[in-house]
Write a protein that binds this DNA or RNA. Structure first.
Length: 798
RNA sequence: GGGCAAGUGGUGGAAUGGCAUACACGACAGACUUAAAAUCUGUUGGCCGCAAGGUCGUAAGGGUUCGACUCCCUUCUUGCCCACCA
């Protein structure tokens, strides 16, 4: 009556493993498919998000196996990172021990789901055979000037005692622990990702199969903006204050200038002025606050007058210079021209401090008065109060004013970027050591290639006190200078884990390769990744860094493609009662307990059926039970097979094969499953023969592999179902003899008729005008028009 | 504040210019059973109607069209991402 999922799933998992059935084998033909899901952090337990991500991937991978592709479907672990250190402190264990235990536990859980990974290719980023190549890549970057050291104020998380990249600061807090981020000065290693900004932006155009939202997020992150750098001269002096603007069309309305507090000239402008002390106090007060706090401290804009004045180059107007907290030193030149009438931030600031304003762009359909304005006008319109540009549209003026200012020497046309260099240093233990030695005489010296890997010492002390445990390991820190042989000191910072995950997709092509990060021959066969699947939370950082690394490898002539991921799918979150599943909410549904109750196949089926992959998925225990019931329903079909299936069923089978194939290719698993359910319902109605049933089972096999393998073998097949081929449909069987035509009067359905397919418009017209059911609607009305959609619909307009 | 999605039965969702609500969950009824579970077979958007049938209905309002869940405009709501980016 019930199929024994526990026995079946264990049996076939063991069989696939023993036969190495899921091993990726290249070069068997010329169709390759590299399917990759974002590898997990080994926390020790898989959650529903993993189950969803990996189930989606597994269906695609198994489908491609059935379609005869060489499939590469690997799995590994993003194993460096803070939680291992935190666990080490808490449980008095070692990060290494803890991580490897977690990896073991997760392997077991992943295997229970029956995912088709080639476990022979498994890798962990914390193994020295992997991070050796992180160090190799770092040295290559160092050689090319792409890795450099810079002392600067960095984001400091007091909770984790570590620095964070700008990208890792979320709402003023640490991306992992959410503690409030502070400012601190440190010498840090950076990667010059900005050198690739043009290509990172330009090549987004190549990514035709990426979700639009991810592309636009990347574009905004890179943040290219065209504008003009305008030179404002100080009144009674030759000192120039450059200012960047994307709105040169508003230059005639610039009524004051604002400097960032950190602006190098700020203190000069204050010196000897009446409010000198007050102004210095203000600068001091603001600079003590971290920039993150300043950014998040709502809308209040504080500022103070410097006492100095500048000249607007286009009209020689004398305008005051202010200092304020809402201007950022990091963007543009650290100084802005303020146009309160056409920028809302400037407007608020001007109102608060009684600064002058002047309208220079008026809306097309009305006039504007600065005295009565309640907010800035940021839309498009016509230039006014703008000298010889009056009357032109501001969009045109943007261009003509820029060119005019450049010609007059008032400024120059310039492009600004939002993208910053990438800070990779971490004052942490559990990461790849940065392969550099500091010598008093020779400075920072790279570790020679033949000395790689620089191994992490296993016996670092974990006290939970701040600072890096690595710095406390004497025999690690003490080193000889590779250049002069003198006593020297080893770098104790480790790399950000985003470094590890920026190239793992290349390593999977040849995970045991000893000569280089990857074997060029294998990479040129498998790469680029045909389908990448993961969470939207990685839309910016991980994907941008991976694209950067790929371009770097291309420049090294190690590969000959410039984008790593052809197609990208970002799957939606798994919700419970409308909320994201999380420990803090206490609404976690543990996959393992669901596998115990209903089996992995039911879980896979439910999670694919409940929602399309990209949208959020609402968890529902009863839905899972429904999936289990469906499997039993299919299971029972084998007990009642007929000699020969009904023609109607065979026709439906061909339709279903087409529909399911199309839906699978478009990752529309929910509707593919719906079709398979309809087909199953039809089998209950008409009765199937062995051939029809086996095709149903093959179509189900990517979704519910153990179940399908078992049924397939019970039907007498000796070979694995994954050696079978995907069923083909006969296009002739899709054509219907008769079609149902919907009859509308004035767009409302009034009747339907059955007619032979391909009937001519004339004949249809004749037929429907005599149709009894339509008479009441046509009587007493004059016929205006008849619209005929062949084989589908007729609309009579009266 | 900006950008991008989305809004459809009691619920998850289907339909991307042509029969709104496929498929599933839940609910209700029938068969089987001493009974229950399981299974099988039905019914299941609202309103009016005994019925045939009619009528309203895809967040709200307007527009384009013979015809709109679908395209356009306005508004509202929710979610995600970004955010003093000049």
């Amino acid at each position: 009556m019930f199929y024994d999922f526990k026995k079946i799933e264990e049996k076939w998992q063991g069989y696939w493993d023993k036969k190495r059935l899921l091993k990726a084998s290249p070069y068997s033909n010329n169709k390759k498919y590299y399917l990759l899901e974002m590898f997990p952090y080994p926390s020790g337990k898989i959650h529903m998000g993993h189950v969803r991500n990996y189930t989606i991937g597994d269906v695609a991978a198994r489908l491609k196996m059935l379609q005869g592709y060489d499939v590469l479907h690997p799995m590994g672990f993003d194993a460096f990172g803070q939680p291992a250190e935190n666990a080490a402190i808490k449980n008095k264990t070692k990060p290494d021990t803890w991580t490897h235990k977690c990896i073991k536990d997760m392997e077991v859980e992943l295997k229970k789901m029956g995912f088709s990974y080639d476990w022979g290719r498994e890798l962990s980023t914390c193994d020295s055979s992997y991070y050796k190549w992180n160090q190799w890549i770092f040295l290559k970057m160092l050689e090319r000037g792409l890795a450099y050291r810079k002392a600067s104020a960095v984001n400091w998380c007091p909770e984790c005692s570590t620095t964070l990249a700008n990208e890792e600061v979320i709402d003023g807090g640490c991306w992992r622990c959410h503690a409030k981020v502070e400012q601190k000065d440190l010498e840090q290693w950076y990667l010059k990702i900005t050198e690739y900004k043009e290509r990172l932006l330009e090549d987004l155009k190549l990514l035709k199969n990426w979700p639009g939202r991810v592309l636009s997020m990347q574009e905004n992150w890179i943040g290219k903006s065209q504008g003009v750098e305008i030179y404002f001269k100080l009144k009674d002096s030759d000192t120039v204050i450059p200012v960047f603007t994307t709105r040169p069309d508003t230059i005639f309305g610039a009524t004051y200038i604002v400097l960032a507090c950190e602006h190098p000239a700020a203190k000069d402008f204050i010196r000897g002025k009446p409010h000198e002390k007050e102004a210095l106090d203000f600068i001091d007060k603001v600079s003590k606050k971290s920039k993150i706090v300043r950014a998040s401290s709502d809308v209040k804009k504080e500022g103070i007058f410097t006492g100095s004045y500048a000249l607007n180059p286009v009209n020689n107007e004398v305008i005051p210079i202010w200092i304020a907290d809402y201007v950022l030193m990091e963007y543009g030149t650290g100084a802005i021209m303020a146009v309160p009438t056409h920028d809302q931030r400037d407007f608020i600031f001007a109102k608060e401090h009684g600064l002058p304003m002047r309208v220079v762009i008026k809306p097309f359909d009305r006039s504007l008065d600065e005295a009565t304005m309640e907010e800035a006008f940021e839309g498009d319109g016509l230039q006014v109060n703008s000298g010889k540009f009056n009357g032109t549209s501001n969009l045109e003026a943007k261009d003509s004013i820029s060119k005019w200012m450049e010609a007059e020497g008032f400024g120059r046309i310039k492009t600004n970027w939002r993208l910053r260099d990438w800070l990779i240093s971490r004052q942490r233990y559990w990461g790849s050591p940065i392969p550099v030695i500091y010598c008093d005489k020779c400075g920072a010296v790279p570790v020679p290639y033949q000395d790689l890997p620089v191994e992490l010492p296993k016996d670092a002390p974990f006290t939970g006190e701040g600072g890096s445990p690595l710095a406390k390991v004497k025999k690690f820190v003490e080193a000889k200078c590779p250049k002069c042989g003198m006593k020297a000191r080893r770098e104790t910072d480790t790399m950000a884990t985003f470094f590890d995950s920026s190239w793992y997709f290349l390593r999977f092509c040849s995970p045991q390769f000893k000569e280089a990060p990857f074997d060029r021959k294998e990479v040129s066969y498998w790469m680029p990744v045909d389908q990448y699947i993961g969470g939207i939370e990685h839309a910016i950082l991980h994907l941008l860094y991976s694209r950067f690394f790929t371009k770097f490898f291309k420049d090294l002539k190690l590969i000959d493609f410039s984008e790593p991921f052809n197609r990208l799918l970002t799957q939606g979150m798994v919700l419970k009662d409308g909320e994201v599943m999380s420990k803090s909410r206490g609404n976690i549904v543990d996959p393992d307990s669901m596998i115990k109750r209903y089996g992995a196949d039911s879980l896979r089926l439910f999670i694919l059926f409940a929602a399309p992959p990209e949208t959020e998925l609402e968890w529902d225990d009863r839905g899972l039970e429904g999936a289990y019931r469906f499997l039993n329903r299919v299971w029972r079909i084998q007990e009642n097979l007929k000699e020969k299936a009904d023609d109607r069923l065979v026709r439906l089978m061909h339709k279903t094969i087409k529909k399911v194939g199309d839906d699978f290719n478009g990752f529309k698993f929910n509707t593919a499953i719906a079709s398979l359910m309809e087909f199953t319902n039809a089998i209950y109605q008409f009765g199937a023969d062995k051939e029809v049933f086996s095709k149903l089972v093959i179509m189900l096999s990517p979704i519910i592999p153990h179940f399908s393998e078992e049924l397939y073998r019970l039907m007498g097949n000796q070979e694995s179902i994954f050696k079978a081929s995907w069923p083909k449909y006969d296009p002739g069987m899709l054509i219907e003899d008769t079609v149902e035509i919907v009859l509308q009067v004035n767009g409302k359905v009034r009747s339907k008729i059955e007619v032979p397919a391909g009937m001519s418009e004339e004949k249809i017209k004749e037929l429907i005008l005599g149709e009894e059911k339509l008479k009441p609607w046509l009587q007493g009305n004059s016929l205006k028009k008849i619209i005929i959609v062949p084989d589908k619909l007729v609309n009579i307009v009266v």
